[in-house]
Nucleic acid binder design. Structure first.
Lengths: 224, 224
DNA sequence: GAGTGGTCTAGACCACAAA
DNA sequence: TTGTGGTCTAGACCACTCC
């Protein structure tokens, strides 16, 4: 077994089991190097990974300490709907309702509305704006045939995003598009996407509350 | 500036700006070491960080490549309600409605119900089960005075968790507790928490949809 | 001031998968 | 087979911060 990996995993196990409590001092790099019979750089690497995972906190001169548990945070995956529904084993379909160019701040933008279907039933309605200045290729894409999210995932590399998730009651027109009664509880997901400082796309998806939920897992230090 | 940090940031900037596209080959460690005039280990560290951040993918013999953008995922923070509401500048209050011990699989468990208030108005109702076998100290905590989440955050280190988020209509009793009309759209958050393989607590929180939303940020490689 | 982490070097060997 | 990443070493110097 890797010395670095072994050191990292043994310390992580001691922390996760509760044997080492938050605030406890972790031995110094020199101590650990002597104990494991390896170079200090190897210990340093292991501890750096634990620090990146949030399990320990390191301070010069003071030493390394078991970190206090963070406020609950979780990695939530907001997948492409076409993939998600296919993974469920249901048929997926995108139906565009409106596609138009509208003037935007600098260049023009594409405004798209449509409905995502799973197993023949409406799952979500989508309202999206795509900045053509940032994604000129989108002007030639056929969003009547391909859902914008699917197309963008394949064409827009390395963006940052901000999601806001709420529960809202479906308005009349929305409820009609989703084939539910007015006022039905729906999950609203808004996502703003940027490349660098420039906005790429904004999307609002409104999901039938009874057919969609988000799942988020959290595991400290699961990354390495 | 740190050589490793500089190499990492320059490559990250090239990827994020779109100058280097997904699938593009990144120069080998030896090339980069020569170009930056540093040791290969330094380049290796920088590239390892980029790989951990998901910006590049590394394959032996093949080389390092700009990764394809991941399915949208985001780090969602599910904070302690007391902290969150205090951060908003509103008064926070927890009101327990029922606390009882019930038999569980191995030992007994604590069953707690109550309401979270923000600015004097109900924000969420909470139903929670705490496994006393895993958290014996909870038997002596005063959950009439302290919200269980707040207490647990301070007493239970290093757990893993799974969240499920849905939009649901408030049932009659729930609506009454939240001071809304029956059928109002609410955000339901269920969280199962474990330490190792052993369940610690299960909680269901039902938020007034008009007063609460979740925010999630995503930024590739924001971590280092 | 002294102890601790943070970083770098130059070199070495190994593991692995692509050519 | 060979080129590439993956890891480790022994040593060095620096930066910070607690005492």
């Amino acid at each position: 077994m890797n010395p670095a990996r072994r050191i990292r995993d043994e310390i992580a196990a001691a922390i996760r089991s509760g044997e080492w409590r938050p605030g406890d001092r972790v031995p110094t790099e020199q101590d650990l190097a002597a104990r494991y019979g390896c170079a200090r750089a190897t210990v340093s690497k292991a501890l750096a990974e634990l620090a990146a995972a949030g399990l320990v906190e390191r301070r010069r001169k003071a030493g390394t300490f078991v970190a206090h548990p963070p406020v609950h945070s979780a990695v939530m995956t907001v997948p492409d709907l076409a993939e998600l529904i296919a993974a469920r084993g249901e048929a997926y379909r995108w139906e565009a309702r409106a596609i138009e160019r509208v003037p935007a701040k600098k260049a023009s933008a594409l405004h798209i509305e449509g409905v995502h279907f799973a197993a023949g039933e409406p799952l979500a309605i989508e309202t999206r704006i795509i900045e053509l200045a940032e994604v000129p290729a989108a002007a030639d894409a056929d969003f009547a045939a391909v859902a914008p999210g699917t197309w963008l995932l394949a064409h827009i590399p390395w963006t940052s995003a901000r999601h806001v998730i709420r529960a809202v009651a479906a308005a009349r027109a929305e409820a009609a598009a989703l084939a539910v009664a007015g006022g039905t509880a729906c999950l609203e997901l808004k996502r703003d996407t940027w490349r660098g400082a420039r906005p790429v796309t904004h999307v609002r998806q409104l999901f039938r509350g009874d057919r969609f939920d988000l799942v988020a897992e959290f595991q400290a230090g699961s990354r390495p």
